[in-house]
Design a protein around this nucleic acid. Structure first.
Lengths: 240, 240
DNA sequence: CGACGGGTTGAGCCAGCTCAATGGGCGTGG
DNA sequence: CCACGCCCATTGAGCTGGCTCAACCCGTCG
């Protein structure tokens, strides 16, 4: 199972996929492409012939405000769909951009649509993925809207750890966290200067450490308690 | 068309429903129930045999923080599903409560599931509703996280007007807005005292007026401009 | 009549902001 | 090999939007 691709690892949490489903998902990709950091995936208005899945790297959904500030509204990690079902909404109400170099897998829209019709467990898993995205947005709304900036950062790191763990991208309490303080600021809606101060505070309290873009959640329990992090909203299975 | 129920009026925006689809949706409700203001719909853990749709009144999704504050993360207006597909996530990560007296329609889960399988346009319309909910969450995240409290309130009122208009619950620029300042505070994550001050300011600027729980967006254009409101994220059709 | 749930207003406070300056790492060009 | 520029992290200083606390008013309801 360790060699399963990230999409399958993730979707396993959404349905009890059978061997045949796994086989189908293994053959679902049409092709792959590499994209550098800071590029927009999926230009607006472009006819969406393919669905995109992140295979490596990190991307985000974002909106740009009239004054030029960037608001990041979702993080897209390995295994995440970028644009499942954009066809239904017709036009994008946000942009999707890479935060690091990324490897993107492409699925032909028709192939996926067929699978959703004929294989109920795959259908269920994709529904699950969509609903979890929504649940994450609700939690972010609470995080951004109600918590102190220290709690916000702590909560973000706890969530990142939990999500990366499900696709096998953590090592114990540490993981690769390539975001600049400016990116973290765009994620949380606080200023980059303040990100710096809060990070120092979390470090000084011995809750985490950061070196070479690798973050170590030294005291995960403490971070979770501080930030009121409870992973139920991610709706992950514990028995995989 | 004026006598169509709110669910149908709303779903028309998600797909070009045919007469037979409309007929099916008209007969979809199993029964109705009335609920007073301030009640929780859908208790946690309860086996979800029915899907709930708001027929009148207003409800919300909310989470309660450890310190007792309430964060409202969605507004549920007439025509909105409360719990389409909760079955897939297994357990609720939030609560659903009424903000006013409500009339709720119940749909048997199996009946709806059957329709989603057999009638593609109904399936598409329900997907559309789910994806719009997600788009609204993204916009709220920007609203709560980035905009000034004056912009936040203005944006909320513009959105409410647009959403209520699609189900025929506005009269020109005015509509019934039964929220207390405390509720508005829970919606935006600001204090009730501050809601008061900002409302006064919006009134003093001649942008809106409020009387007997009815709000009048005197200068809708001005409110939209102030708050950077652009209704594309609601993905409504203009030609209905 | 009193209690209670709103709305309104004043006064002082503080988390997080902006502006500004400094230092380190790194790629580029001379 | 060094000089330069650039991006990012860091730190200081002062400002402010929105907060809390605390009154007070009004209409409604038991």
């Amino acid at each position: 199972m360790a060699d399963e691709n990230y999409l399958i690892r993730k979707l396993r949490h959404g349905a009890n996929l059978e061997a045949e489903d796994i086989g189908r998902l293994e053959r679902i990709f049409d092709r792959f492409k590499s994209v550098g950091a800071g590029c927009d995936l999926i230009a607006e208005g472009q006819p969406p012939s393919h669905v995109h899945v992140i295979m490596s790297g990190t991307a985000c959904r974002y909106k740009v405000l009239p004054d030029g500030r960037r608001a990041i509204v979702s993080l897209l990690l390995p295994g995440d769909f970028c644009d499942l079902h954009v066809a239904i909404l017709g036009h994008m109400d946000h942009s999707i951009g890479t935060l690091t170099d990324c490897e993107i897998a492409l699925i032909e829209r028709d192939v996926l649509a067929d699978m959703l019709i004929h294989y109920p467990l795959i259908n269920r898993a994709c529904w699950w993925a969509t609903l979890v995205d929504e649940a994450v947005l609700r939690e972010w709304l609470v995080n951004i809207g109600r918590r102190s900036s220290e709690q916000q950062l702590a909560h973000l790191f706890c969530e990142l750890h939990a999500r990366l763990e499900t696709v096998g991208l953590t090592e114990g309490q540490s993981f690769f966290m390539p975001f600049t303080q400016t990116t973290l600021a765009d994620l949380l809606g606080i200023s980059a200067v303040h990100v710096q101060r809060v990070m120092s505070s979390l470090r000084d309290k011995g809750l985490l450490s950061l070196q070479d873009r690798r973050i170590n959640l030294i005291d995960f329990r403490g971070l979770a308690e501080l930030s009121d992090f409870d992973p139920v909203y991610l709706h992950l299975k514990t028995d995989i």
